[in-house]
């Protein structure tokens, strides 16, 4: 049975956790956040963004020293545009972005969980992490400029 594809215009959420994916003291986010393989993401179409703090704490904060620091969002059209531009810039074949529903019993509903199929290169992932929209639990919005997290002036 083939996997169900996530809707073409959907917004995806990724947990940013320290220490494995985020160096809090340096303010540096790792491209490993998006390299995969089969990068786990959540769907705001089925689960409201504000509910992801509790969900990610329950499902991904393992071991205890692993801490959820930020929620990162991006839409599928944005991902595809980044992949297309990256291929042009590096003169390499375009990486197709395919996001499939992968039911996960920790998610409620389970179909709120999906995966970006396959592995993305460090280079493509490095471009993506600079385009993600980062949100802290206090509602503040952040961007990653490639060196460190920077607060956005027009926070929510």
């Amino acid at each position: 049975m083939s996997d169900q594809l996530v809707g073409e215009e959907e917004e995806l959420v990724r947990a940013v956790c320290s220490p494995d994916g985020y160096d809090r003291d340096a303010g540096r986010i790792s491209s490993l956040l998006m390299t995969g393989k089969n990068t786990s993401v959540s769907r705001t179409r089925l689960i409201p963004l504000q509910d992801h703090w509790e969900l990610f704490r329950r499902c991904v904060e393992k071991p205890d020293v692993r801490k959820l620091e930020l929620c990162a969002t991006i839409t599928i059209p944005e991902l595809r545009a980044i992949a297309e531009q990256h291929a042009k810039d590096y003169n390499i074949p375009k990486r197709e972005i395919k996001v499939v529903v992968k039911p996960n019993s920790c998610w409620k509903p389970p179909d709120g969980h999906a995966e970006i199929e396959g592995r993305l290169s460090q280079g493509l992932a490095n471009t993506i992490i600079k385009k993600l929209h980062y949100l802290k639990e206090d509602g503040s919005l952040w961007t990653f400029d490639g060196v460190r997290l920077v607060a956005q002036e027009d926070a929510a």
């Binding site: 340096a26 491209s31 490993l32 393989k37």
Partner: peptide, 15 residues
């Protein structure tokens, strides 16, 4: 910085 991937790889990253 040193990071850990889902597949157990270690990444050294700087600018």
């Amino acid at each position: 910085s040193v990071f850990l991937s889902d597949d157990g790889e270690l990444q050294l990253a700087w600018n």
